[in-house]
Write a protein that binds this DNA or RNA. Structure first.
Lengths: 338, 338
DNA sequence: TTGTAAGCGTTATCAA
DNA sequence: TTGATAACGCTTACAA
């Protein structure tokens, strides 16, 4: 019933052994310790309700069993599954996750990297969605913390691995499907095009057209942001430009929602008049009217694999690997295509 | 260019002062220190790229500037905004957040509370959605960590505050609005009814009917889970029971989506034949067809206020308050009601 | 204005 | 099979 937490020292005193002994027992490094003292110590620790102080422990072991997760915005439906995957894997291995929202703001990212290295996290999972050009991460360079990148590519010596998705192939599959279903004039409403992601998806779009001998026209492509408002506006713009089309391939599902909303307002029927394919497969896409055909990203798996990779790196300090995991997308066929 | 991180001791040596002096300067407790030594130390710390070791610091100060956030599932659209609000406030105050997903599993909760107290978090924000009865939290009792509850009520001496929503009033407002718009036979498709939340909402539903002299019938109320599948099934069940109705008040937005989907399949027009009101206002509710009229919960604010409250508690160790903050809901009128 | 030194709760190296 | 004891890097009385 003491007020201060019980320490190893007090247990040692009560059990009439040394702190070293107690420590070994509590950490299962007790091969050489007699069952008698072992049980005695364990009993006392239990009774006194001993809780180890990880600060003290980390100070000497130099590991915190904590990893940082930096992402733009947990409120964006793209990220919760990544976070969940990461947390699940971390939790399995008895690691904890500190999570940070940057709003795609470089200053914030710098700040968080600083904080995380001060907190001595063992590693960082870094999901930086929007491309911010080639800025160098000064905090990252100061820090020696190993980093696993999600979704984007950086050059940095702390980067020990990347987990990405084959975006080119993903959009190739989506667009090919549209063509296969008889659609011929396919708009591409992209997100922010500075993004490598968006570029890769554009490449996949082009390749699908090419392989099907459909001419690629710049007038059919517009890029904006990854928000549903942009999809809504984009359709408006295409209509104003008197562009005619029978399908829309969208940079993500949110954009697709906007596209569909606007088209409904114009009385365009989906999928009969126009087919729509999204990208991501966020959880509501199946509930929309019509349910959205989309290229699913394995978000949960990305988070999970990223942590898995990090733990591997942590356990093989020696070999300085920079592993790259490329995950496949999956076409989810629903009702927005015929 | 050394390999090990620079310590205060090395800086002290290089600056030819004591570690105490360096520590004071680095912590802005340097009222009494000459500008000369001050600048010298700061310069060296900058050049050598000093990063404080928070393990060591926390060991003596007994605070980690870290707080735990326990919630059922970040993947559930209800929670990301809470998490975001919490993180924003924490970040403002230079606190970090460790986040934990319990899947409404009591074992998990216990485990996380244990881990968090081992990690010596300064406090815990606890968002426990589904009611798990009156189970006692043994880990919580062992731990002395202050806890702020979100959304649910527990009795526990570690609970130093609660942030909740006035559910009774919320559903009262929603149902009153339906009545005001001329709807008369209003179903209530509730979530899990063991939940206090669901009970309070039921109470609000009844009060609205009563005040408008509409008889309450048990046959108009069904409870299931907070998932869209349940909304879908519920409508089916009501139809099978040959219950006629002209409005549906839903336990949350997800349920409303399911309800709407099923009704569309039956060719029921919304809002003309039947009006629908949801609860929560998750981010897609405005994008649905028709856009959903719903009782908005201030999720972001709940997270934000919870951390705010926790920080207050942390700064007033002396008075043993248990503050309760009750936030108001807001009726968001869109197109699923006439 | 600055330095000395104790101590935070562990782990880990030697010795015994 | 166990015990002393020196770290780990920092803060904080108290002295000087």
């Amino acid at each position: 019933m003491g007020d201060k937490p019980v320490t190893i020292k007090e247990i040692a005193r009560e059990a009439e052994v040394s702190t070293a002994t107690v420590s070994m027992i509590l950490n299962n490094k007790d091969k050489s310790i007699s069952a008698a003292t072992r049980n005695k110590v364990l009993a006392i620790a239990g009774k006194r309700n001993y809780i180890p102080n990880t600060m003290a422990r980390s100070l000497v072991t130099r590991q915190t069993r904590t990893i940082g997760l930096i992402m733009p915005d947990i409120t964006n439906p793209f990220f919760p599954e990544i976070a969940r995957g990461a947390e699940d894997k971390a939790s399995e291995a008895r690691y904890s996750i500190i999570f940070c929202n940057t709003d795609d703001n470089l200053k914030q990212e710098e700040k968080y990297i600083e904080i995380l290295t001060e907190k001595m996290v063992d590693g960082i999972i870094f999901a930086h969605a929007a491309d911010s050009g080639e800025e160098s991460f000064t905090s990252l360079n100061k820090s020696k913390t190993p980093v696993i990148l999600i979704d984007r590519d950086y050059k940095n010596e702390n980067v020990k691995g990347r987990v990405m998705v084959d975006n080119e192939k993903g959009s190739y599959t989506g667009v090919s499907y549209l063509i296969q279903k008889g659609y011929r004039t396919i708009l591409y409403v992209a997100g922010a095009i500075i993004t490598q992601t968006a570029k890769d998806r554009l490449a996949g779009y082009k390749r699908a057209l090419q392989e099907n001998h459909i001419e690629w026209k710049e007038s059919l492509v517009k890029s904006g942001s990854y928000r549903s408002e942009w999809g809504y506006q984009a359709v408006e713009q295409f209509m104003n430009d008197h562009v005619s089309f029978d399908a829309v391939f969208c940079g993500n599902d949110l954009i697709a929602f906007g596209v569909i909303k606007k088209m409904k307002e114009f009385g365009i029927r989906i999928p009969d008049d126009v087919g729509v394919v999204g990208f991501d497969d966020i959880y509501v896409s199946s509930m929309m009217e019509p349910a959205l055909t989309t290229v699913k990203q394995p978000n949960y798996e990305m988070g999970y694999r990223a942590v898995e990779l990090l733990l591997e790196v942590l356990n093989n300090k020696n070999d300085n690997l920079d592993r790259k995991i490329v995950l496949n997308t999956e076409l989810i066929i629903r009702k927005s295509t015929r």
